[in-house]
């Protein structure tokens, strides 16, 4: 038995009440819930009862949850967080490596440069970092303005704060000190900052692709 447009509308209202506007998941979650209801109705159960039973089954997937990968301040429906973890896990390790590796390498093998070269690198990193910070601000504004929610925009939301590393490493501090010695901690900050920019760029593209793909739907 197929649901009527009015009954489907009730299911959509249920998803709205759960604040489930993630367009990359919504089409198939809606279809799945409707199929569940139709399955119950085939056993001669009324729409109201079938819908109530289906809601009980789905409640756990919409429960707000957070993850170690994104920090406890960011929570979303469990199904969204699960998808986000699967998409983000490898980037989390990239982020950690980008910080830890330069710190370890330059602690073990200190680098000294001429003052002229050190000033050139510091100046270049400052300008480049400023451009990168502006790019992340652009991504932030674009995502907010589009008002579309995807799992990727959730991941993005959790990553913006990481840009602080770039500000600390290249804008507030310097990679080389006045004597031309490389500072491993600041180098790690800059490297982690660039990793954050790359992650933001990657998930922003994914977010835009998802909007393009599901806009018609």
């Amino acid at each position: 038995m197929e649901l009527t447009t009015q009954q489907i509308h009730k299911v959509e209202e249920y998803l709205n009440s759960k604040n489930f506007g993630f367009i990359d998941l919504r089409v198939e979650i809606l279809d799945h819930i409707i199929s569940d209801i139709e399955n119950f109705m085939q056993k001669n159960i009324s729409f109201e009862n079938a819908f109530a039973m289906t809601r009980i089954r789905w409640e756990k997937h919409f429960r707000e949850t957070s993850s170690f990968y994104f920090g406890m301040f960011f929570s979303e429906s469990k199904i969204v967080v699960k998808k986000a973890i699967k998409q983000f896990r490898s980037f989390y390790f990239l982020y950690l490596t980008a910080y830890i590796l330069p710190v370890l390498i330059f602690k073990l093998f200190p680098v000294n440069a001429t003052v002229g070269f050190a000033n050139f690198v510091n100046g270049f990193l400052l300008s480049f970092s400023a451009v990168m910070v502006c790019y992340v601000v652009y991504i932030f504004i674009k995502t907010i303005v589009s008002k579309q929610k995807t799992t990727f925009s959730f991941i993005l939301k959790t990553q913006y704060f990481g840009i602080i590393f770039l500000i600390l490493g290249a804008v507030l501090g310097t990679v080389f000190n006045e004597e031309g010695e490389l500072n491993p901690i600041f180098t790690g900050f800059v490297s982690a900052g660039f990793a954050v920019v790359f992650i933001c760029h990657y998930f922003f593209k994914k977010h835009q692709e998802a909007i393009q793909k599901y806009k018609i739907s």
Partner: peptide
């Protein structure tokens, strides 16, 4: 479970 299925399908798609 749906909570395991869709994240897995989307990962395979990605």
């Amino acid at each position: 479970t749906e909570g395991a299925l869709y994240p897995a399908l989307h990962k395979l798609e990605a």
